[in-house]
């Protein structure tokens, strides 16, 4: 009986953590897809590893270090982008640079044992009560931000001049998304790890695209598909003893393939 309870509680925590991340990442990921920010998301996510190293070195909470570094990277990249190099060159430098510097930094931490694989690929089964609280708090903050500014975010994404004519400050909305992205990175690090965070953003959103007719439908479908992938991936990693973060991403990719197949099937039927 005690074993069952134990089994239950950490599996439940893992499932809830995955759900929290997926529900926030789904709608936010739509903006990443619409605005072609996948590489930007990668740079921000990779910066989290540097954040871990800095936090451990300065004995700050890891979560705080990760959030601050991700924020610094996200805003730094958006300010510098397009100045000297093409945006993707610069993002490539920032993304891989942050990863490399982070790996070097972590290795230099004398006397501290760091679960590197956990930070790179996530360690959802080790999510504690405190982690779970932080994950859901962060996810709720992202969801509230998106709902609150939804229309403005959409307008700014669609066309910045139209946004100006409608009194929407496109720059401010871009900053809001950057903030949300940094927050998501901090929240998702424990669940899927620095290397796979972007996948949680773009795969469910891309899977939702062929099935949606409006941005709202796409955001909700994306959240739902992400949630299914989180729970499904956890279940199959438990059965097959595979790493959980990658298993969640694999499940999401299966959803992507199925949704595209379904859309192609529907498209072939005569319309009207």
């Amino acid at each position: 009986m005690a074993r069952v309870m134990l089994f239950d509680s950490f599996l439940w925590r893992a499932a809830l953590a995955g759900l929290g991340v997926a529900l926030a990442a789904g709608p936010l990921g739509c903006f990443v897809v619409w605005r072609r920010m996948a590489y930007f998301g990668d740079a921000t996510a990779h910066a989290s590893l540097l954040g871990v190293a800095l936090a451990l070195a300065s004995e700050l909470p890891v979560m705080l270090g990760v959030t601050l570094t991700a924020l610094a990277m996200a805003f730094g990249v958006s300010v510098a982008s397009g100045r000297t190099y093409a945006a993707d060159t610069m993002l490539g430098v920032a993304s891989h640079g942050a990863l490399a510097v982070g790996l070097v930094g972590v290795s230099l931490l004398a006397g501290i044992r760091v679960d590197l694989a956990g930070y790179l690929f996530g360690d959802i089964l080790a999510v504690g009560r405190g982690d779970l609280g932080v994950i859901w708090l962060g996810a709720a903050a992202i969801a509230i931000l998106l709902v609150w500014r939804w229309n403005r975010l959409l307008v700014a994404t669609l066309n910045e001049d139209l946004a100006a004519a409608w009194g929407v400050n496109a720059g401010r909305e871009r900053a809001m998304l950057t903030l949300a992205l940094a927050l998501l990175v901090a929240v998702a690090l424990k669940v899927v790890g620095a290397l796979l965070i972007t996948a949680m953003l773009i795969v469910p959103a891309a899977a939702a695209r062929p099935l949606a007719r409006t941005p709202e439908a796409m955001a909700m479908l994306s959240a739902a598909l992400g949630a299914m992938a989180a729970v499904g991936g956890l279940a199959f990693s438990w059965r097959l003893d595979t790493p959980t973060g990658p298993s969640i991403v694999v499940t999401a990719i299966v959803a992507l393939v199925l949704s595209n197949a379904a859309a192609a099937f529907v498209d072939r039927r005569p319309v009207e």
Binding site: V33, W34, R36, T157, L158, R209, A212, R213, T214, P215, A217, M218
Partner: peptide
């Protein structure tokens, strides 16, 4: 309007 955004 990018293909990525469904919009009626």
């Amino acid at each position: 309007v990018d293909y990525t955004m469904p919009l009626t």
